[in-house]
């Protein structure tokens, strides 16, 4: 996918650009707000990574508001050292699609970027069924089957599985799960998510030959055939 990266700090910019290029994405870089806004208006991107505090008089939120005013709906991920709840709310209100606060781990950023682009593509058709390999869930009857065998899941387990299946083949981080499945926006001390994933595995992976839920080291989890 084509990514526009607007970030003034060179170390962070190189780090992100290098990581994304290695993951096979095309990255355009801009070091200040003016250049960033010009690039964003000229070209079509799949996603924009936008720093909030930028030199050159054009601030991140200003770029975002300008784009949205002109009807440009490219998903925007805000990347900022302003980690406040209020700042996040302000960023999302201005039209941002996701918010990652600095310092961040690259895997978190990448996972969120991919989820953002995927969400943008999928939004058109509402799904009633999700299938990965021999695992199948019905979103209407809220039933789960694997290899023709019915699996009973608690409501929360079902939502966890649904979230993983909607992001099939993508890394989802623990924070993404906590936000997406439980709607919690804090960092628990204990491995809450790991415990819930392990419970889910007991039900959908254990009785079967090969596992679908994979652990991605230093990043999170991935559902894959």
């Amino acid at each position: 996918m084509r990514v526009l990266l607007i970030e003034d700090d060179q170390t962070v910019r190189n780090f992100v650009a290098k990581g994304l290029s290695e993951a096979g994405h095309l990255v355009e870089q801009a070091a200040d707000g003016k250049q960033g806004l010009a690039l964003a208006c000229q070209d079509k991107f799949d996603v924009i990574i936008l720093d909030r505090m930028l030199p050159g008089g054009v601030e991140g939120l200003h770029i975002l508001e300008t784009l949205r005013r002109e009807g440009n709906l490219t998903p925007v991920l805000l990347l900022s050292a302003l980690a406040d709840v209020d700042e996040k709310v302000a960023g999302l209100k201005a039209g941002g699609d996701d918010y990652v606060s600095k310092p961040f781990s690259f895997s978190e950023l990448q996972a969120r970027l991919e989820a953002l682009v995927r969400r943008n593509r999928n939004e058109a058709q509402p799904l009633t069924k999700l299938t990965v390999g021999d695992l199948e869930i019905d979103l209407l009857s809220r039933s789960v089957r694997r290899g023709g065998q019915k699996i009973d899941l608690q409501p929360r387990e079902f939502r966890l599985l649904e979230f993983l299946m909607r992001h099939t083949g993508q890394v989802v981080t623990r924070t993404m799960l906590l936000e997406g499945v439980w709607d919690y926006h804090f960092d628990p001390q204990t491995n809450v998510i790991d415990v819930h994933i392990s419970r889910l595995r007991q039900k959908i992976d254990k009785p079967f030959e090969h596992a679908l839920v994979h652990t991605v080291r230093n990043a999170g989890y991935m559902l894959q055939e």
Partner: peptide, 13 residues
């Protein structure tokens, strides 16, 4: 209740 549900699994563990 929701928080308890989140932590019940951890406690169980």
């Amino acid at each position: 209740r929701d928080i308890a549900e989140l932590y019940e699994a951890v406690a169980d563990d």
